[in-house]
Structure formats: structure tokens, C-alpha cells
């Protein structure tokens, strides 16, 4: 049984179709890369999945529950975590508060499982080697550190499905490695990850499957190696080769 099931998902904004009949089944524990040219609808798909946009047509089921009409906060509470392209940390809050606010937003039964929230905060910061910065404001961190904090915060809050929107954008190569390791940790823990990325070697390293979006529909999908060597991918990114 799929963890996430998307059926005939369409979205039209201002008369313009943005997503067109997307069908996708995501199994528990899968890491799926979502790629495609700019404007193909990747982030919009994530916005629909995390509840910031309502689809015009279609259904989304998460753990067999229809969540098509659920608000973003409800989706987070049933286990969907989102990491934003533009750094989702609260810059005016300390690192400690950034983690604490995520834990406090959890349903009561999940908070009880975590036990002492202060210890959970400390272990989260330790996981990404930021424990020495606990009392500092998040705006003092580098882009990569903000990204690590954001992923770790989502991880500790017990989410089952992670929607990561370009987690390596604007991040140094060293940090990219750390982020990849953290995503692999998610995978080992049996979490399910959907990740938007432009860095194909990164996608190849961590993903089980890749879907390619083009003008709001799935143009191609398969194993990372197969997709990478598929001529259609080049065509989508660079247009048809006139010599062919």
C-alpha cells in the first residue's frame, strides 16, 4: 500500500494550467527526485502536497487518508514535513527556539513520546553539529547550516514524508555532502523523501527513483541512471538537437 497516492492532480491558476493530471504512487521508504526545467511545476506540486495551494482537480491520499482539503498545519500534524527553497528557519529566533517551536507544534501524543523537549532540542542540534550555537539567533548561520537545521528540525519532529525543495541551493560543496548524509540518514530510518533538485549527480547518489516534470505533467520517470541517459531528458532541458 502506497504511503502517498496522487491521482489526476491538476491545478489551474489564473486560467493557466500549472499541473496537469499528475498520477504518482510513493512507497514508504522511497527517496524520489523531482527534476525538470524551470517553470515545470515542481515547487507548485510541493505547495499542493503541503496544503498551500488547493488542487483544481484530483485527490491526494496520505496513509490512506484523503488529505486533499486539509490545511497546511493539519498535513504537518499527520506527518508531512516541508523544507523550503528559501530557508524555512525563523531568523529572529535562536536555534534552540527554532527546534522547540517545531516540537511544540506536534500533536500531544507525539510530544509525550519525545519526553523532555529540552533534551530533544539538544540532540537535534547535536545531530547537525550546531549545539554550540544553541543560544544564537538563526540569522547568524550560513545558508548550509540553516538548511541542516531545517532538515534536522523536520526529522526530529517525527515526520514520515519529507518534501525537500532544492536543499542544496546556495550551499557550499562541503555542506552539500553533509546534507546528502542527512538525507541518507532519513532513508535508513525508513522515511520517505521527495526531493526537488537540479544537481543530477546528487540525485543519482541518493534517489531510488526520479520523476521528470515538464509543463506540469510527468514527462519521464524511472531509476536515476536510466533517466539520466534518456535522450528525452536532454531534450527537455536543452530542446531537440537539430542535427538528429
Amino acid at each position: 500500500m502506497s504511503l502517498l497516492s496522487i491521482k489526476s492532480l491538476s491545478l489551474t491558476l489564473g486560467g493557466q494550467p500549472i499541473l496537469r493530471g499528475i498520477d504518482l504512487e510513493v512507497e514508504k521508504g522511497e527517496v524520489i527526485g523531482v527534476i525538470g526545467p524551470n517553470g515545470s511545476g515542481k515547487t507548485t506540486l510541493f505547495n499542493v502536497l503541503s496544503g498551500f495551494l488547493k488542487p483544481t482537480h484530483g485527490k491526494i491520499h496520505f496513509k490512506q487518508t484523503d488529505m486533499t482539503g486539509m490545511a497546511a498545519s493539519e498535513r504537518a500534524r499527520i506527518g508531512i514535513g516541508r523544507v523550503f527553497q528559501n530557508f524555512g528557519v525563523f531568523r529572529e529566533m535562536t536555534l534552540e527556539e527554532n527546534v522547540l517551536v517545531a516540537l511544540e507544534a506536534l500533536p500531544k501524543e507525539q510530544r509525550l513520546v519525545l519526553g523532555d523537549l529540552k533534551k530533544a532540542v539538544h540532540s537535534t542540534l547535536k545531530l547537525v553539529h550546531l549545539e554550540d550555537h544553541a543560544k544564537k539567533k538563526a540569522n547568524s548561520l550560513s545558508g548550509g547550516q540553516m538548511r541542516l537545521l531545517e532538515i534536522a528540525r523536520t526529522l526530529v519532529s517525527g515526520k514520515e514524508l519529507f518534501l525537500l525543495d532544492e536543499p542544496t541551493a546556495g550551499v557550499s560543496p562541503k555542506m552539500t555532502g553533509q546534507i546528502a548524509d542527512l538525507i541518507l540518514t532519513l532513508k535508513k530510518e525508513g522515511k520517505t523523501v521527495l526531493i526537488i533538485e537540479h544537481d543530477l549527480p546528487f540525485i543519482q547518489k541518493i534517489c531510488d527513483r526520479v520523476i521528470v516534470l515538464d509543463v506540469g505533467e510527468i514527462a519521464l520517470q524511472g531509476k536515476p541512471d536510466d533517466v539520466r541517459h534518456n535522450g528525452k531528458l536532454k531534450e527537455l532541458y536543452f530542446g531537440a538537437d537539430p542535427t538528429d
Binding site: 503541503s50 496544503g51 498551500f52 490545511a71 497546511a72 498545519s73 493539519e74 504537518a76 500534524r77 514535513g81 516541508r82 523550503f84 524555512g88 528557519v89 525563523f90 531568523r91 529572529e92 529566533m93 527556539e97 522547540l100 517551536v101 517545531a102 511544540e104 507544534a105 506536534l106 500533536p107 528540525r153 519532529s157
Partner: peptide
């Protein structure tokens, strides 16, 4: 308290706060 932190989070970025499960 949680209320102060959640208010700050919503004030700084509503979407990011809601994505954490904060009930606006």
C-alpha cells in the same frame, strides 16, 4: 511559552510556521 514562540514564528513567516503544524 509556546504561544510566544508560535506567534513569533507566524509573524516571521506564516507559511513556514504552518508547515511545522502551528495552528494559526
Amino acid at each position: 511559552s509556546w504561544l510566544g514562540r508560535e506567534l513569533s514564528a507566524l509573524a516571521e513567516n506564516r507559511a513556514h510556521a504552518e508547515a511545522l503544524g502551528i495552528n494559526r
